[in-house]
Design a protein around this nucleic acid. Structure first.
Lengths: 330, 330
DNA sequence: CTGTTAGCGCTTTCAT
DNA sequence: ATGAAAGCGCTAACAG
């Protein structure tokens, strides 16, 4: 199982290690014939360069780390797809991992990425002042934050304007004229707070008080919430509008409502947030605040690549505008 | 931005590099007081070990690579969650990437994993004889294949018995007594072929011919197939049973049928395959062949860890038994 | 265009 | 228990 190294190739080709190394890193500057010959030998001997050695010696690792908050939320997966897409076209590879919304895990993942000398990282932090952000910054690795505006103003980010997204929802809901309004959120995350802030700014309080449920994080949580909403808020009796700040959760809620034959949108109107792929394809297509998720991923990846090419350019700040998409759930 | 190294720590602590290195790798054998002191200094100076150097010098990287076929299929994501779960408990980190069902990408990813000296890899190969499998094997990196039985009998794998899964579906469908049976599959993948083989073995041909649609791969593909099924197969007229070999696709089909008010299961009965989380939670819970997806991930990860600990033990072969879960879609 | 040489940061014998 | 030194596989000056 002895691994073939650059020296083996050099020996077989009758050249020095340096020459072999050059065909790997700067193929241009080596004589075409020798280059071709060396390449053939590599092929024949099944040579695979040791990225650790390359990295240690200073070459870029051509991999970038992506830290998301959960694997089971399509929102993050779709971002990752966008990222993977552009990264691949540039011959970079993506290393995906999930913090599971746990700050300690996030920190550990950041350490691990620094430790393995990725060329750049994309991070969806648990908090706008997550320790991971400073660790990454100090390490000097190009960094772009996604789905969050970091408190440190020198850091690049790509996110959607959650506050105005919340407003869009409020403006729309104001017109709905329902008897009660219920807001449902998940983690204590900046993005959600902003959505709520925007929403409350825009919400016409003549419509009555807003009831709020927090900590509803997953599809399953949403599903399970429905009976509670029915007993506590009589949503099947009173005309209700639900503003749910995460489409994954929204889908869970809708499933259960549909199962129990609560008419949507007649009895319960629903406004979601994110516009994941399923939102437009589910049984009752979702009225929702659209984040152009793929774009977030694509833009973040492109900015990161650019940042890697121009390390001391000023931070890139993208606050994308949400769009309000009216479909059938409201 | 100069990075702190082991030498800096050694200098600050007034000891040799070797001692510092030992507190990293074999903390037990170093004097408790010096160890504590060194640890403190590391902490204070924000030292982060360079994994590349550690790896190059022979230490394990404590990361394992996971290659799946698509990010947008919950089946694979759920496997990854299971893997992540056990890996984390053992202080390993997971490096996830997707081949997008492209053999060349798979090969490239395998190269990259070998190149970065991961301690082990979990691969869901595009084909049972994917070149990536041999590359990995030859590299000597412990490998466990998932969702496929590799042709090379020396390779460990964890997968579900697709053939008997297909049979289970057939046995059930035989009893349904519908006018027509339609089978819908996606990629030309071993797992799907086996499911079909099992299905056809068990299917009672008295029920009439089986029509088959191939290349239906995604949720969206399933959604889009419905109009075709209606015009070509009159599924809204004839009593039909659909056997769909992938729940993600099944959900797409169901959404569209529900939208068009085709009664499920009265007019169209549906039997899926996989039992992803959504299958039990969607509007019309899915009758499906359950793969115990989380178990696949968990078992694969555990076997891999075990294989890493005992490198020349015989290959581990897990052919899990599918369960047939009857819910409301049929 | 190619070879020589000196590291990159860490682990690991081998001494002490 | 600790230090000295060699080396992991590769890149990058620096010469030639």
């Amino acid at each position: 199982m002895k691994r073939i190294t650059i020296s083996d190739i050099a020996k077989a080709a009758g050249v020095s290690k340096a020459t072999v190394s050059r065909v790997l890193s700067k193929p241009g500057i080596v004589n075409k014939e020798t280059r071709v010959r060396i390449l053939e030998i590599m092929e024949r001997m099944n040579y695979i360069p040791n990225q650790l050695a390359q990295g240690l010696a200073g070459a870029p690792t051509r991999t970038i780390g992506v830290v998301i908050d959960e694997l089971s939320n399509p929102f993050f997966i779709e971002i990752a797809e966008g990222v993977d897409w552009v990264l691949n076209s540039q011959n970079y590879s993506m290393q995906l991992s999930s913090s599971r919304w746990i700050e300690e895990r996030e920190t550990a993942l950041a350490r691990s990425l620094i430790s393995s000398r990725v060329d750049g990282v994309l991070l969806a932090p648990v908090r706008p002042d997550s320790p991971a952000i400073q660790m990454l910054k100090q390490s000097g690795i190009p960094l772009v934050i996604i789905n969050c505006i970091p408190v440190d103003t020198e850091i690049s980010y790509v996110t959607c304007d959650n506050r105005s997204g919340g407003r869009l929802a409020a403006d729309y809901i104001n017109k709905l004229q329902k008897e009660q309004t219920i807001v449902i959120t998940g983690f204590e995350h900046q993005s959600l707070k902003d959505r709520i802030t925007g929403f409350l700014e825009g919400f016409n309080t003549n419509q009555g008080p807003v009831r709020r449920y927090q900590g509803i994080k997953t599809f399953g949580d949403g599903y399970d919430l429905v009976p509670i909403l029915m007993t506590r808020d009589q949503i099947h009796e009173k005309k209700t509008v639900l503003f749910v700040t995460n489409d994954n959760v929204t889908l869970g809620i809708m499933e259960h409502l549909a199962e129990l034959s609560v008419p949507i949108p007649d009895k319960v109107a629903i406004v979601g947030y994110d516009d994941i792929r399923l939102s437009s394809m589910c049984r009752i297509p979702l009225t929702t605040v659209s984040q152009s998720i793929r774009d977030i991923g694509r833009i973040a990846a492109m900015e990161l690549l650019d940042l890697m090419a121009h390390p001391d350019s000023p931070p890139r700040k993208h606050l994308l505008s949400p769009r309000f998409v009216i479909r059938e759930s409201s």
